[in-house]
Structure formats: structure tokens, C-alpha cells
Design a protein around this nucleic acid. Structure first.
Lengths: 145, 145
DNA sequence: GATCACGAAACAACAGGAGTTGCATAACTC
DNA sequence: GAGTTATGCAACTCCTGTTGTTTCGTGATC
């Protein structure tokens, strides 16, 4: 399957928006992400509904941050995207009759659930503001070197 | 996309094979998994190459275990399947020019890598023999109750 | 009113597991 | 050695969800 890159794309965009004055058009965002404006609007709609972004129609319109990046975690973005499926692997049948399969599901399902829980917890610990500051460090290194 | 259920299917089959005398045909396995023999052969081929299974052609042929279930971990099976993609989510570009995207990838990629590492480590700790014994417990509970 | 920009619907492209068919090949039975 | 059983392999189609694209509607600005 093609990997779902909506989370990383949104993080990318949000940091750019933070460093940008005034609203940013879907057109410009699309160029940053190497995609097109419709995909951008579709993906960002969830973030607007959650109150992280605002969008303004018409001349001079576009997208703007409604919150500080320090107030938004990776998990917030993940949830705003509709909590996409995390794993490409899973069990064959969620409620099997076969006791063997039940034993398999118990072990595999448990391991997957725990891994997902850990990943999402980790996402909840990281604010986008931290990523932005990491970008600043990289920028400083780049210009210094 | 539809979840990749090859791992759980193979675990399911291996335990059944352990409780079965003589070779098991792809046809019979397919009925256990609610699929068809070609899918079974395709999926089990990797386990044969790794030496966990043998397959015999012709009359009276079929599949048989070449190892004890205690010698095979979930991770062994995962690897025999060609190490399928674990996550349905990922970063947009593995080697981006944009420094912002690099910072995003560092954070998201790291979290994903760590989660994958943990999951695979956990898989490495669980032998199929343990799952089989868990099945026995469930069976006992079922007949006792 | 012309232009700019978002909103929404509809559809094709793509990727990978799963399902299916057909045929070749090997092994056993008679 | 002919028939049967079973795997091995190749070449499809199907399914599902992200991504990409086009088109039209609508609101805001100039």
C-alpha cells in the first residue's frame, strides 16, 4: 500500500505557516508539498474543524494558524485527520469461531494494540513547536557551516 | 487498504499443523483459512524457504512442520513472509531538500522506527509454541465450562 | 462585475494483499 | 503407463484507501 503521508505533510505545512505572514493559499501550500490545491483543502479541512486553522475565501484569503504551534501535538494532528489506520498488518478475523485463531488474535492483537498505544502516546508528547525549534537548529547549523 | 493478515494466518495454520498427523494439503489449509489453495501456497512458500516447513508433491503429499513450534517465533514468521510493511502511515519524502520537512521526518520517522522496533522485538519474544499452549488453556476452559 | 480563493462532488491513478484460473510437473496408485 | 493427487508458477482480476485531477458553486475583495 502507498503510505499515508498526511500527518507528515500537515506538520510540514503548519511549521511553514508559522514562519509566514498573512494567509497562505492552497495553491502555495500545494507547491510546497508537491501536490495540488484540492488535496491540500481536503487534508486541511479536519484541522480547521478542530480549530487549529482558519480558512478565508476570496481575494487575499487562504489558510492561517489559529493556535500556537506549542499548543498542538502530533497526536492532535493525527486525530484531526480522522485517526488514520496505523498498521498495514492485522488479524484475519476480528471475532473468529476457531479457538486456535482466537489464541493467535489474542497475542498478535495485543502486541499491535500496545505498539499503537505507545506510538500515539509518543505523538502526544511532541508539540509541533518543538519540531519548529529543531528546524531552527538545523537552519543555524546550515548557515553556520 | 485491506490489512495484511498473512502473519496471523500463518500462525493459525502452523498451530493446526502441529496438532495434525501427516501432511496437510493446501486445499485443507485453504478451507481452514476461508481462502483458496493458491493463496496458501504463495504465502507458505517463504516459510518453506526458511526451513520451517516442507512441502511434498503428488499423491499423499502436502505441507508438514520441519521444526518444533517452540523453535519458531512470531518474528521468524514475519521475516519469512518477507518483512511486510508494518505501518500504513509514513513520511512524504524519505530524503527531502526542505529543512522543515527534514525536521518533521526526524521526529515522525524516529517515532515510527522506535514503535516498529518494539513491535518486532515483542514478536521475537513470543514463540508459536506459547500460542499453542494458550490455545490448550482456552480449549480446557471451553470443555470444562 | 471581474478576479481570487475556498468548498464540494465525481472520477481516475496507483499500490499491495487477496482471489482466481490455467497449465506444468512430480509422485503415488492401479 | 495411464489416471489421480498435489504442489509450483504465471497471469490475470478484485478490493480498498490515499493521492491526483477536473469541474462547478460560492463568497470576498478590488
Amino acid at each position: 500500500m502507498r503510505a499515508d503521508s498526511r500527518l507528515s505533510r500537515m506538520l510540514h505545512v503548519l511549521i511553514h505557516m508559522d514562519r509566514h505572514d498573512g494567509p497562505v493559499t492552497s495553491e502555495l501550500i500545494a507547491r510546497m508539498l508537491n501536490t495540488n490545491p484540492v488535496v491540500v483543502r481536503r487534508t486541511m479541512a479536519g484541522l480547521r474543524e478542530r480549530g487549529y486553522l482558519t480558512s478565508v475565501k476570496g481575494h487575499g484569503g487562504g489558510w492561517a494558524l489559529a493556535r500556537s504551534l506549542d499548543e498542538i501535538t502530533l497526536r492532535d494532528v493525527y486525530e484531526a485527520l480522522g485517526e488514520p489506520t496505523v498498521f498495514a498488518i492485522g488479524v484475519a478475523d476480528d471475532d473468529p469461531k476457531c479457538l486456535v485463531e482466537q489464541a493467535v488474535n489474542a497475542a498478535v492483537g495485543e502486541a499491535l494494540r500496545e505498539a499503537e498505544q505507545r506510538l500515539l502516546s509518543r505523538f502526544g508528547e511532541i508539540s509541533i513547536g518543538e519540531l519548529a525549534r529543531d528546524f531552527d537548529r538545523r537552519m543555524a547549523e546550515c548557515t553556520a557551516g
